[in-house]
């Protein structure tokens, strides 16, 4: 059994439509996992079930040996950072951070010491007497984090904590979060819709869609081997085409071109997908027996470090990123090569 376990969680507001259906998720102690998906996929709902802000209609939620499914939110001892930060506007930074400790009836000196320590760790000691209104976005974010951490929570829950920051701050804050999380060894759930943010920070990623976890794996595994078309699309695969199985590693496209793969699918009809970066372009026929299609350049877009081409082929339009200079012009006849180790079947 894992440290954190969600088993068969179902959430429905109206009794008819399920926001979460039969959701299962487990985490080991000290892990940082992310819930990744588009808005409305159920990732925030999952986090709120863990926090105790939503009681699931069915299923159980356990941490360690204790079943917390029915335990009210204020008795769970989880730290949560909200998307809006939800700082108490009528309290100073110090009072905000000390709020949870005061409720735990700790001794005054203990509270002061702990608050001071976390304020220093999060670089906030200069702002301790300020009110939230007087802080910048990044400072508010750190107060929210300090407030959640100071109660020494069993779990740390982060609901899109970086989405209200500008791009530069976002990167430095996510490194900061990772650093603190590692240092304290605190088990953390991170909700985001930003793929890059999520991959950079997580031990494991659960990609969610329509209230279901489509794939739960390490970031590398998800990046290399998306299991479903949804996951593939969400993490940047652009080209999808139908394939018919001939043999374990041999497929044909709709126009009969032979495609070899290193992967294999159980089904007879399947979909092949590949990132624009992984397709090779060539002006001449490579005269290889498989994985090559003839096409015409239709659109060319300059991306900075590469060009993106829209290539029309017999199996449809393919997007290809290519770094060759000077590159191809619109109307050029080219050959598209799909490396077999880069082709994914979903």
């Amino acid at each position: 059994m894992s440290f954190v376990d969600l088993k068969n969680i179902r959430v429905s507001y109206d009794g008819k439509n399920n926001i979460l259906k039969e959701l299962n998720l487990s985490m080991e102690k000290g892990e940082l996992i992310s819930l990744l998906g588009p808005s409305g996929c159920g990732k925030t709902t999952t986090l709120r079930v863990i926090a105790g802000l939503i009681e699931p209609n069915d299923g159980t939620f356990t941490v360690g040996d204790s079943n917390l499914t029915k335990v009210p939110v204020h008795k769970r001892n989880f730290g949560m950072v909200f998307q809006s930060y939800a700082l108490f506007p009528h309290l100073t930074v110090r009072e905000n951070v000390g709020f949870g400790l005061k409720l735990r009836k700790e001794k005054k000196e203990v509270i002061e010491k702990k608050v001071q320590a976390i304020l220093e760790a999060t670089d906030l000691s200069h702002y301790a007497e300020r009110y939230p209104k007087q802080l910048s976005g990044g400072q508010r974010q750190r107060v929210a984090l300090a407030r959640a951490l100071v109660i020494e929570p069993q779990l740390l829950l982060l609901d899109e904590p970086l989405s209200n920051l500008d791009a530069k701050l976002r990167i430095s804050m996510r490194i900061e979060i990772k650093r603190i999380q590692r240092k304290l060894g605190i088990t953390t759930v991170f909700v985001t819709h930003d793929q890059e943010e999520c991959f950079s920070i997580s031990d494991k990623v659960a990609v969610m869609n329509n209230g279901v976890i489509e794939q739960y794996d390490s970031p590398e595994e998800i990046y290399k081997n998306p299991k479903t078309e949804f996951v593939a699309r969400f993490i940047g695969f652009e080209n999808f085409f139908a394939l018919t199985k001939q043999d374990t590693h041999t497929y044909t496209t709709s126009d009969g071109t032979l495609i070899e793969t290193v992967h294999s699918a159980g089904r007879q009809q399947t979909t092949g997908t590949i990132r624009p970066d992984d397709i090779l372009l060539s002006a001449h026929d490579q005269e290889i027996p498989s994985n090559s299609l003839a096409g015409t350049i239709r659109v060319r877009t300059f991306l900075g470090k590469s060009y993106q081409y829209e290539v029309e082929t017999s199996i449809g339009k393919l997007l290809v990123n290519d770094v060759q200079v000077p590159g191809y012009q619109v109307g050029d006849k080219v050959f598209v090569v799909i490396p077999k180790e880069k082709l994914i079947l979903v």
């Binding site: 009210p72 204020h74 909200f82 700082l87 108490f88 949870g100 409720l103």
Partner: peptide, 20 residues
Amino acid sequence: EIMEAAETLGASRIKAFIKV
């Protein structure tokens, strides 16, 4: 979310109401 934040920090509904 402010009310919810108070609850995650250990305040019961009534306490969160009174304090926040």
